[in-house]
Design a protein around this nucleic acid. Structure first.
Lengths: 134, 134
DNA sequence: ATAAATCCTATTGGTTTAGTAGGAATTTAA
DNA sequence: TTAAATTCCTACTAAACCAATAGGATTTAT
């Protein structure tokens, strides 16, 4: 797994929305300004998060986004998988994004990377947005 | 960290050389054929491994490559860092390849990724080519 | 009506990845 | 002494990916 800006910005946006959960719909511009994210870039990420049912939106004036799930029901793993794909260090040991890669035939090598995959998934699966705010 | 073909092929080549440590210099074509690596691509990797002092070479007929270190003195971490850079999931938590990234200001978030970084480095640092052969 | 917002797709510029190409230099063996 | 086998080295390329930017369509509140 390699974090891209997409994932990092998406996490920051979710963290912001979680911290302002009670404030109704919040616009992209407010979040972008608060978290230092290019607004038009954030727009794409928000749309993806909405389509993946992490967010709800309202159009028009007074519109914006809000969380569609409780912060403790959004794991870092889900968000990162959405934007960056496999959590595993190489796809041949990925459960969700399997593809063949050269090291596959070396069992001892794949074992090492499976151990890493397991630690990473476990860690990101159990850590939620709720753990990150405050 | 995300493993590229470069790293994977390089590891396979080192594993092959470690398994044939007593057989003198071995040519790129032999390794490429045995491990299923595009030979001209492998050539570049071998050159990099040589410049990083993992390999010795001999030119000309009967030439080729051999390990310049014992297999138990070559960690997976060193090889992967050479070809793929940071082991950390994002550069803002990397000790060897630090760069600023968006999540940096969220301490709880960086903590999670530092934990991952620590597990991954520790694992790849302590696993050597010797552990992988046989 | 107008302004503010999301929705949606296309485009762009730069970088990285996974090679390929080809010539120069060196060594061995016939 | 010449040919073959090898490493050495750099440049090139095609495709994919990344980090945005652009701009129009739609919806809603005032």
């Amino acid at each position: 797994m390699k974090l891209t800006s997409r994932s990092e910005y998406a996490l920051l946006a979710l963290v912001y929305l979680a911290r302002h959960e009670t404030e109704g719909f919040i616009s992209i511009d407010v979040i972008a300004t608060a978290q230092g994210i290019p607004p038009k870039f954030l727009e794409q990420l928000m749309l993806a998060l909405k389509r993946a049912h992490f967010l709800r939106s309202a159009k028009g004036q007074k519109g914006g986004y809000q969380l569609a799930k409780r912060p403790d029901q959004i794991s870092l793993a889900e968000v990162i998988r959405l934007f960056d794909g496999a959590l595993a260090p190489t796809e041949s040991v990925s459960l969700n994004f399997y593809e063949s890669t050269p090291i596959e035939k070396e069992k001892k090598l794949t074992k090492v990377f499976k151990d890493i995959r397991d630690y990473v998934s476990q860690k990101l699966e159990k850590t939620t947005i709720a753990d990150v705010i405050r």
